[in-house]
Amino acid sequence: MKKTLLSIAAFTSLAFGATDAQIADFFSKILPPDASFNIISKKDVGNGFEQVTFEIKGQMDGKEVSQKDIIFTNGDFFAPDIISLKDGSSLKDQAQKALSSQSLLPLLKAEKKEYIISVGNDPKKPTEYMFTDPECPYCRAELARIEQELKDKNLKMVLTPVHDRSALEKAALIYKEVAKAKSDSEKVKIMRKYYAPSAKVEKGSVSDAEVARLEELRSKYFQAGLKSVPYKIMAE
């Protein structure tokens, strides 16, 4: 659902020189005229590859937005990702998690309490943030095993639906009901009610203003670098 200024995957077979000037020149030719391209950092990741982190700024829906992304260069070629044949791990996933932490954690720390559902409060356990959507099947699977997760960590969940209005309405109702919950088990029960595939929202139970606030909430995080749900990030 998320719009992006550029889809890197479309350029996996293109070749160009790996100097800063050549990379910038290449992207300047394929970006919209009002967009700007800036290399943030370059890092040697071994086997002749260099990780290049960059930022693109431009206009989208009348607003100025920025998008940070990563490519890997080797001589005159670049690739959107490097996958290990030994364990299937993605070098880009690892790099993006680190990049996301830099942009998402400050927002999470400053977030209003009403938009964070806290489950678990054990000071001896680490705390993990999770972005989630009541209509996402993978998010439902995460919620199904939440009791197991809570054995090892505390969770702070932020509802950032990628689906349409019905998902935003469910998120609004979850926040409203969770605010009155007196225990973690009550919070989980409320979430499971609205995460159920059969869950319906009664017409008129959520106002346009409430939907707009949830739309603004999710947009803030996706513009900051969130790319999908469920997405987890450890608190510092």
Rank of each mutant, 00 (worst) to 15 (best):
residue 63 K to F: 15
residue 26 F to E: 03
residue 65 V to Y: 02
residue 60 M to V: 03
residue 154 N to M: 07
residue 105 L to G: 12
residue 217 L to I: 03
residue 182 K to I: 06
residue 236 E to V: 05
residue 227 K to C: 10
residue 110 A to K: 05
residue 129 Y to H: 11
residue 40 I to R: 13
residue 153 K to M: 02
residue 83 I to F: 04
residue 5 L to F: 09
residue 161 P to D: 07
residue 221 Y to K: 01
residue 27 F to Y: 06
residue 179 A to G: 13
residue 35 A to M: 04
residue 134 P to Q: 06
residue 98 A to Q: 10
residue 108 L to M: 10
residue 111 E to L: 09
residue 43 K to L: 02
residue 176 K to N: 13
residue 130 M to C: 08
residue 27 F to E: 02
residue 235 A to S: 08
residue 140 R to I: 14
residue 162 V to R: 11
residue 158 V to F: 05
residue 59 Q to N: 07
residue 96 Q to S: 10
residue 88 G to E: 15
residue 121 N to T: 09
residue 61 D to K: 02
residue 111 E to G: 05
residue 186 E to G: 08
residue 78 F to R: 11
residue 200 K to E: 13
residue 85 L to S: 12
residue 226 L to M: 09
residue 151 K to C: 12
residue 10 A to W: 13
residue 103 S to P: 10
residue 20 D to L: 02
residue 208 D to L: 08
residue 54 F to T: 06
residue 135 E to A: 11
residue 67 Q to V: 12
residue 127 T to H: 12
residue 218 R to E: 00
residue 180 K to H: 10
residue 45 V to N: 09
residue 235 A to Y: 03
residue 233 I to R: 02
residue 111 E to Q: 10
residue 125 K to F: 02
residue 88 G to L: 11
residue 127 T to C: 07
residue 121 N to C: 12
residue 158 V to H: 05
residue 200 K to Y: 03
residue 87 D to H: 03
residue 117 I to C: 09
residue 226 L to D: 06
residue 233 I to N: 02
residue 228 S to P: 00
residue 25 D to M: 05
